[in-house]
Design a binder for these strands. Structure first.
Length: 769
DNA sequence: TTTGCCGTCCTTTTT
DNA sequence: GGACGGCAAA
């Protein structure tokens, strides 16, 4: 074995090279007697935690309140099993995010050293197993994994084929319904059988065609990964029994968020040995909308009558004030089992509830408070801002930028959904899976090579008639009528793909670089004509992530790399040590903790979201979401709401969230920004919005902004450069230097005076714009 | 065929 | 405020 940790974390890009401490631990473990090692493992655990860790065979349910040391229990339990002589490769730990898997893996390594324990997400486990058993499942081992955007393309195509206007049947809607059906293990035929009204009947038509499209592309969507695994386990006894023997101990984290398919996978795997350890908290179930079924955890005892149930109710994370506020809120839920949350932590400061005149002042207030916190010795990365919907991040970002506060938006998938990244990856996907026509069509004219809409239509028609893939159709270009003028270009493209397929197969970095160079994408991105140099930056970042992948996975191949990138989730890119304030949705925040938490937009319609209005069960889920957010906070928690908020351009009056009224007043401190603001405001502001009318100019403004795009020009700035800030006006750079990863500059504004800003974040424009 | 401009529509959360 | 599709001009 090499010096690498032989850790099987599937779907995780990197595991820190902790081999040294790991080796040391292993040696330590070998030297220690078994019982003293066990003592050490159990030393710092409470009685309840210990009980869960040492539980032997048979089903176990750990109901773990927030901050009750759940991850600790899981990792120690895994270590304990290993110490008891269970072979590492017989242990399977399932999580919901790669981040959680990674974290858990790291902690287990610290406890027991390297091992072959499988710690991964449901989705990556399924992707990997489906590849492994592809031969037995009449499945192509090189299948593509379709993400949301790919599925959307396929869904639009499916709607068109079903003679439905994709406008009336948008992918967002059809996809959600079909995804839900799949999570509940309803195949297209079964769904059709149940369809009894116009809407579901039409969806059934789309569903059937959608599955055909996936099949002809040799592609699976996220739900198929789970669904196909379920069928494999149910219909292939040999696979089932082999896997049951392989995974003799199964741990499932966040059990309250499992959907039907995940539930079946876990149950079937454990049918023989019953060694399932589920951990979760019904009060933190926030994915009902995605098909998660809270009754999976509520009915655990029914499913596993021998189950032992352990409750972890002591909280080690939050102050008394924060915990009692959160507890008071969650008590308003009726669909819930009573639970006593308590902590021995200090009382701490009351939870602050801040009333702001509008969304902008709210964002500025948050930025101001973060600034204060850091001025008093705090660190940016101790702070997080949560919101219900992603769109709320914008104003906060702006405010943080102008305050020169470093932040990171925790939205990992955003990177992978950028056009240039998707384009490059589409080339790779076509290389791996030539039948992936969705990817092929994506790049058929990227960079522009004179294959336009008409040509594509002709190709599509031909390949449908002949029932072949687009790639095959390319090869027969001269036989396709209506292509006359573009035959040459099509042939050329086919030649390019062939050439690429003869290029290097690995390492992934080499494949990527070859693709970018040979396709002409490189020169396209490098083209000075585009002011926006971020495309090349992003592609470079992709290349370095591929290089990292090659380093972490010496045996890795393109297929595996693509699988990992397809299954990346938002939190996965969160870096707790980046020295930046974290911005994320409340959903993404689950499982994390921060000393200081801001939750913004606590308004009716936002939290609870308007989509759940008048649906009591969904409002309870919103309340749980609020509970999850609040219980992330260790020491300080601030909830804010704004009287006026911008919707689609227009500002409108809001109503405070009813949840605020449910918080116990003795753990709150209320304040209002209105007074302080009124004092300092100019007459103009007091008279209300006095924005210049922009009527016809909207698109012109938009165009100017696009051209002015900040990215890239930061590198060109030097001392003496003149810049323009939309609020502060013209300014000159007086000083410029590095601050860690960022460029910090002192800018002297003509009107506003001298300010220090992080240039990467500052909302600056070229001065001559 | 490509490009840019315009109006329309939308808006929850995500593996 | 942005994604997307349609349309006209280059």
């Amino acid at each position: 074995m090499t010096g690498r940790v032989a850790w099987c974390i599937f779907g995780v890009l990197r595991l820190p090279s902790r081999s040294l401490p790991a080796e040391r631990n292993r040696l330590k473990q070998a030297q220690e007697s078994k019982s003293s090692y066990r003592d050490r493992l159990l030393k710092d655990l409470t009685a309840a935690q210990r009980e869960a860790v040492v539980h032997g065979e048979g089903p176990l349910l750990v109901l773990a309140g927030p901050g009750s040391g759940k991850t600790r229990v899981i990792t120690h339990r895994v270590a304990y099993l290993v110490a008891e002589g269970i072979r590492a490769e017989n242990i399977l730990a399932l999580t919901f995010t790669n981040k959680a898997a990674q974290e858990m893996g790291k902690r287990v390594v610290d406890l027991v050293g390297a091992g072959k324990i499988t710690i991964c997400t449901f989705h990556s486990l399924c992707a990997r197993l489906l590849r492994e058993f592809a031969g037995e499942l009449s499945l192509a081992a090189n299948f593509s994994i379709f993400d949301r955007a790919d599925s959307a393309a396929a869904l639009r195509e499916a709607a068109t084929e079903a003679d439905l206007d994709p406008k009336n049947w948008p992918a967002a809607t059809t996809g959600e319904v079909i995804s839900r059906a799949k999570s509940n293990l309803l195949g297209p035929e079964e769904y059709e059988g149940q369809a009894d009204d116009f809407f579901t009947k039409q969806i059934a038509k789309i569903y059937i065609r959608y599955q055909k499209i996936l099949a002809s592309n040799e592609a699976l969507d996220f739900d198929d990964l789970l669904g196909r695994m379920v069928s494999a386990l149910r219909e292939n006894e040999s696979i089932r029994s082999r896997l049951a023997r392989r995974y003799r101990y199964v741990l499932v984290d966040e059990y309250q968020d499992t959907n039907r398919a995940q539930y079946v996978i876990a149950r079937v795997l454990c049918r023989d040995h019953q060694n399932i350890c589920a951990t979760g908290d019904p009060d933190q179930s926030i994915y009902g909308w995605r098909g998660a079924d809270i009754s999976n955890i509520l009915d655990f005892e029914r499913d596993f009558p021998q189950a032992k149930i352990i409750r972890l109710e002591q909280n080690y994370r939050s102050s008394k004030m924060i915990l009692s506020a959160a507890d008071g809120l969650i008590r308003a839920n009726r669909q819930r089992r009573e639970k006593k949350l308590w902590t021995e932590n200090p009382a701490g400061e009351p939870v602050e509830v801040v009333y702001c005149p509008d969304d902008r002042s709210e964002a500025e207030y948050v930025a101001g408070r973060i600034g204060e916190y850091v001025a008093q010795g705090g660190r940016y990365d101790e702070v997080a801002v949560f919101y219900r919907v992603n769109s709320l991040s914008r104003l906060v970002e702006q405010a943080l930028r102008s305050a020169g506060i470093a932040y990171q938006m925790v939205r990992g998938t955003a990177f992978y959904s950028r056009k240039e990244i998707k384009d490059v990856l589409a080339y790779l996907r076509v290389l791996v899976n030539p039948k992936d026509s969705v990817s092929l069509l994506r790049i058929i004219n990227v960079p522009a090579r004179g294959i336009g809409n008409k040509t594509v239509k002709a190709l599509q028609e031909y390949r449908r008639a002949e029932d072949i893939s687009v790639l095959e159709a390319l090869g027969q270009a001269e036989r396709i009528g209506g292509l006359s003028r573009s035959v040459g270009r099509v042939k050329e493209f086919a030649g390019l793909l062939k050439e690429l397929s003869q290029g290097p197969k690995r390492p992934v970095k080499a494949v990527l670089e070859n693709v970018i160079r040979r396709t002409g994408l490189e020169s396209e991105y490098a083209n000075e004509r585009s002011v926006d140099t971020s495309a090349m930056d992003n592609v470079n970042e992709l290349i370095s992530s591929a290089a990292q992948y090659d380093l972490d996975n010496p045996d890795g191949d393109l297929e595996d790399y693509l699988q990992q990138t397809a299954l990346i989730s938002d939190v996965d890119t969160f870096d707790a040590e980046r020295g930046a304030v974290a911005l994320m949705t409340m959903h993404t925040a689950k499982g994390l903790e921060f000393p200081v938490v801001f939750m913004i937009g606590l308004e009716e319609g936002l939290l609870p979201h308007s989509r759940s209005a008048d649906k009591p069960l969904e409002i309870e889920e919103e309340r749980r979401l609020c509970f999850v957010g609040m219980t992330r906070a260790k020491r300080r928690l601030l909830l804010s709401y704004a009287r006026y908020r911008q919707f689609r351009g227009a500002s409108s009056r809001t109503v405070p969230s009813p949840f605020l009224g449910e918080l116990p007043s003795e753990s709150l401190r209320l304040s209002s920004l209105e007074d302080t603001r009124a004092q300092g405001s100019s007459a103009k502001e007091l008279l209300g919005e006095s924005r210049p009318k922009t009527t016809l100019k909207r698109s012109a403004v938009r165009g100017a902004r696009r051209r002015a795009g900040r990215a890239g020009f930061v590198d060109r700035l030097v001392e003496g450069s003149t810049v323009y800030h939309p609020r502060l006006g013209l300014g000159k750079i007086e000083e410029i230097g590095r601050d860690g990863k960022f460029t910090r500059a002192v800018i002297n504004f003509e009107q506003a005076g001298s300010k220090t800003m992080m240039l990467e974040y500052a909302d600056l424009r070229e001065a001559n714009d």
